[in-house]
Design a protein around this nucleic acid. Structure first.
Lengths: 147, 147
DNA sequence: AGTTATCAGTTTAGGTATAAATTGATAGCA
DNA sequence: TGCTATCAATTTATACCTAAACTGATAACT
């Protein structure tokens, strides 16, 4: 194995380690968050949807899918469920359906969102403010990958 | 709002931003990886399982669940599928079942794993080596949260 | 031997997600 | 008017994942 190959192998290993750490943190954090919002009968996916609708209402299903980074099909399914739960409502407007919170949805929003956000943020408490900023800037740089 | 509250609000916001960035990167990376391993008829979950079995065989389903950070029930389901595909085999050994790759599984492993690992690692290419190490150390610190 | 605890794996029920094909409505042009 | 493009949302088929209850086998103690 040449010196160059060795270098590349180590780069791959570092990349894999990074990937593994991120996946591990993400999954664990998700599990914890799920347990947390269960108190209000919600799942994390439903909570995220509640936040986006509450923050940007009214908005189309298309927009919602983009904000939540999921497929349109997924949105259709989740909205059906949350419509049944009485948390959101759909209103046909030309070709699109505008989504907004019901009164009940608004109440839940006010009740849960601040608490869950606090909880979410607390998962980074082992890092001080400087480290958090550093992490954020590295993550931003990572996203340049997209194009 | 007091000066103190303002500070706390900003901490929460930073935490939320971090969470959002990580989720975004994780989901996107997963999607891309899924597209990549599809060439070999695999999904990312199946690929991950293939890697763990290939690296640690023979191992029990319990151990496999721990390595992959998923539930035992999930392992049961995935193994049934991959057994049908002829990639892995189970062997009852006392109370546990020992999992290992079939010949076909071995072949696929040799074929796919190096390529996919290269692909996985390449997702961090917008960071230089120093930045990658920095990111890794921040992520490690994050994991202390667990206990 | 008989009772109880423990533990690996399975089952069940339900939530989340995708890709790909389809529907149905609007828009724009021949 | 009629044809075609387009586009939001839905449907379909499939995969992943969990929590919680259950099964069945071994261990371990009296």
């Amino acid at each position: 194995m040449s010196k160059n190959d060795l270098g590349r192998t180590q780069d791959v290993r570092l990349g894999l380690l990074l990937w593994f750490r991120i996946a591990r943190f993400y999954n664990q954090s998700n599990r914890l968050s799920n347990q947390h919002v269960k108190k209000w009968g919600l799942t994390i996916a439903q909570f995220d949807l509640l936040v986006q609708v509450g923050t940007h209402q009214p908005l189309s299903q298309q927009e919602l899918a983009e904000k939540l980074l999921v497929s349109k099909g997924n949105i259709t399914q989740m909205l059906s469920k949350m419509e049944k739960l009485g948390l959101i409502k759909r209103k046909q407007e030309w070709r699109t359906k505008l989504i907004s919170l019901t009164t009940q949805g608004e109440h839940l929003y006010e009740e849960v969102v601040p608490k869950q956000e606090l909880f979410q943020a607390s998962q980074f408490k082992t890092l001080d403010k400087e480290e958090q900023k550093q992490l954020l800037s590295l993550l931003k740089k990572l996203e340049l990958n997209k194009g």
